[in-house]
Design a protein around this nucleic acid. Structure first.
Length: 707
DNA sequence: CTAGGGTTAG
């Protein structure tokens, strides 16, 4: 029996390489071969030693053969690592270019990085092409989602094996075109386990669990990977009981099975079960332990997370990143920063996690600092910054970041576009939004649901709800967010009837409305005075659709009744306290009392608002105004005092406008603004124009020129 | 050259 001890003298790679060289020199080639073949870990020196050992003993053919093998090994190592420059240098020095393996490795390396021209050059230059060469080119196209070219290439292939077919299926799965994937899967002459697993994962990733299950049951041969794929399918579908049963029925389990199962428990919040499973796992690896940490992180149980973290002997980047993300999500940025500083092997994810953390903590200055300092950035770094500005209400900064990104020659992706559109929506920046729409059409991201839904909201909030409708009708596979966005868009623009009709269409199509849908429809009813309709819909919501009403729904109802002058019923709804009292609820009541000039009700609503939001200055102003209207000046004074006690400084209203190529920002009552009198007169003009239904958001801005 | 697990953006 062979010993596998680590510390034993003479068994490390270095010493064995030396031994091979010595044996070779003294003519003991058979002993050298024996050592070489027994070595479990070999490096390039090992191969070189063996090559010279063969050469010195006259076995030139063996030497050449092994030498080529060693070249091939090094080149494929580089290409698999994506280090194409180094691979190419070796490839150019290659003494014997007859063998196709190195060519294929180079082609695969270039093609996978999307460098099709380089790949093609080698492909057409190579002396003898085989199927692997063709498949390597094909993999380049399919792995990058270039299915048009990929399919064309596939058609040109004189000969195809199961790998070629699998690549096509995988490509379609990656771009989410399951119908095409299925079409090709069925055409595979002799599908193997890989084909079946690829298709199964495709169904699983797209929530088509029944089809995944059918496929699994039909599989002629199953290996661990097949079982793991089915397990992952149940986990993704949150069917934890089925996952547990499958896990117990599995004929064989490897580290991936255990990790998947632990992750399954984590996904449904069963952390104790996950912990027990980790405890039972025969050989705990980092992936499983990290899954556990991730579970604790999601429940903000950082003490237990760090307990697992501390148990890990050799920690890799991923588990560090998970811990940092955990502290960041808990708003504990000091600790996140501490760990980050401790890391010696930071990768892009580590940096991006810090950006996201600071952004979520509202510290965009810090996020920007990290972004500026980091050496390399990827698309996620940019998107995290843009999303951060967006979340903090800094919409203009978000757009500026978008611009800067394009100036640096980076291509925006689905996430960038949907964030950019969201910024436009919040600014009602129609023209910038339209420019983005053009870019999206050119970039091919029109079919992305995140993007389409963001387009709907952008148009709706910019007052072009019929453009929103066009976008909606163009989507092939609408989801609940699409429906909700358009309904909310109708509501916002005062199209109550259309909102209700869209809900009806949704029901006919068999799509189940959710809480958000009804917030949209009810607010549409209240904005357009569809009182009876709104009340009926609210009843349907609870009784037919079994949707638990939120405070927002009650706020809509109060608004609905209040606007119609049914103040007593509105007040009754609020007093019944069927939901948590929120600012929105009393806000609706206040709105109604202002329309119908009911001072007492207004006073009541505002006082409640003050209780809920004691630090919001506008509430004090509202209450003060009510008393002022009634001439109760002592009360006005009392509220002024109250406000100055509770709020350090009144946040001045701030806005900006772009004229020509300049941004003019101004505060309300800003004496420093040279043309404040003119600025203050603008709203009156605007209000007049608004009555003609023109769009306020037609700002000419420097953004437009650059987009 | 093809399939499965743990971390960051919407």
């Amino acid at each position: 029996m062979r010993l596998r001890s680590f510390g034993e003298m003479g068994t490390n790679v270095f010493n064995q390489n030396l031994k091979i060289t010595q044996l070779g020199k003294s003519g003991r080639i058979e002993e050298a071969i024996k050592i070489f073949s027994q070595m479990t870990k070999k490096n390039t020196v090992t191969y070189n030693s063996m090559v010279s050992a063969y050469a010195k003993n006259g076995r030139i053919r063996d030497a050449r053969h092994l030498d080529l093998f060693s070249w091939t090994l090094m080149i494929t190592c580089y290409t698999r690592n994506g280090e194409l420059q180094k691979a190419r240098e070796l490839f150019n020095l290659l003494p014997d270019k007859q063998d196709s393996v190195c060519w294929n490795a180079m082609i695969a390396g270039y093609a996978k990085k999307g460098l099709y021209e380089e790949a093609k050059k080698l492909f057409y230059e190579m002396p003898v092409k085989n199927l692997v060469s063709w498949n390597s080119m094909l993999a380049g196209y399919t792995k990058n989602g270039e299915m048009h070219i990929g399919l064309q290439f596939f058609e040109e292939m004189a000969e195809r094996d199961v790998v070629s077919w699998n690549l096509i299926v995988d490509g379609f799965v990656e771009v989410g075109d399951l119908d095409s994937a299925w079409k090709f899967f069925k055409k595979i002459p002799e599908p193997n386990v890989v084909s079946w697993v690829t298709m199964l994962c495709g169904f699983a990733r797209n929530g088509r669990i029944v089809e995944a299950q059918d496929l699994f049951e039909q599989m002629p041969i199953r290996n661990v990977v097949s079982w793991n794929a089915m397990l992952a399918a149940y986990v993704q579908d949150s069917q934890i009981d089925r996952a547990v049963r499958l896990f117990s029925e599995m004929p064989e389990r490897d580290a991936v099975s255990w990790t998947t199962m632990i992750n399954g428990y984590v996904c449904v919040g069963k952390l104790d079960e996950a912990r027990q499973l980790l405890h039972r796992m025969p050989y705990k690896n980092i992936a499983a332990q990290t899954a556990m940490i991730s579970g604790y992180v999601q429940s903000k149980r950082m003490d237990e997370a760090s307990q697992i973290f501390n148990q890990i002997g050799t920690r890799d980047v991923v588990c560090w990143n998970t811990m940092i993300a955990g502290y960041a999500q808990c708003g504990r940025m000091a600790e996140a920063q501490f760990l980050f500083n401790l890391m010696t092997n930071k990768d892009l994810v580590s940096w991006n996690t810090m950006i996201t953390g600071y952004a979520q903590a509202g510290q965009m200055d810090k996020a920007l600092e990290i972004f500026d300092v980091m050496g390399k950035r990827n698309i996620v770094s940019w998107n995290s910054m843009i999303a951060g500005f967006l979340q903090n209400g800094l919409y203009l900064d978000a757009l500026k970041m978008f611009l800067m990104m394009r100036k640096e020659g980076r291509r925006p992706d689905q996430s960038t576009f949907s964030c950019g559109l969201s910024a436009c929506a919040n600014l009602a920046a129609l023209q910038v939004g339209e420019q983005l729409h053009h870019l999206i059409l050119k970039s091919g991201y029109v079919n992305d649901l995140f993007v389409s839904n963001a387009l709907i909201t952008m148009y709706a909030k910019s007052g072009r709800v019929f453009n929103a409708e066009l976008v909606f009708r163009d989507i092939g596979n609408v989801d609940i967010v699409s429906w909700n966005s358009l309904i909310a868009g109708y509501a916002l623009n005062g199209y109550g009837k259309e909102a209700v009709e869209l809900l009806e269409e949704m029901l006919i199509e068999g799509v189940a409305p959710d809480q958000v849908t009804f917030v949209g429809v009810l607010s549409a009813c209240s904005h357009t005075g569809l009182v009876a309709q709104g009340l009926k819909l609210f009843k349907n919501m609870t009784q037919i659709h079994k949707i638990e009403p939120l405070p927002e729904h009650y706020a809509c109802l109060v608004d609905l009744l209040g606007r119609a002058g049914r103040l007593e019923e509105a007040l009754k709804l609020v007093l019944e306290k069927k939901v948590k009292a929120t600012a929105g609820l009393y806000g609706a009541l206040l709105g109604a009392s202002r329309i119908h000039r009911n001072l007492e009700l207004g006073k009541y609503a505002t006082e409640k608002l003050l209780e809920l939001e004691p630090h919001k200055a506008s509430n004090y102003v509202l209450l003060s105004n009510i008393h002022a209207e009634a001439g109760r000046w002592s009360e006005v004074e009392r509220i002024r005092v109250l406000m100055s006690e509770r709020i350090a400084a009144k946040q001045p209203g701030c806005s900006w406008i772009e004229l020509g190529n300049q941004v003019h920002s101004f505060l309300s009552d800003d004496a420093a603004q040279p043309r404040i009198a003119e600025v203050c007169s603008i709203p009156k003009t605007l209000t007049a124009e608004l009555n003609c239904r023109t769009c306020v958001s037609d700002m000419k801005s420097s953004l437009l020129d650059i987009l």
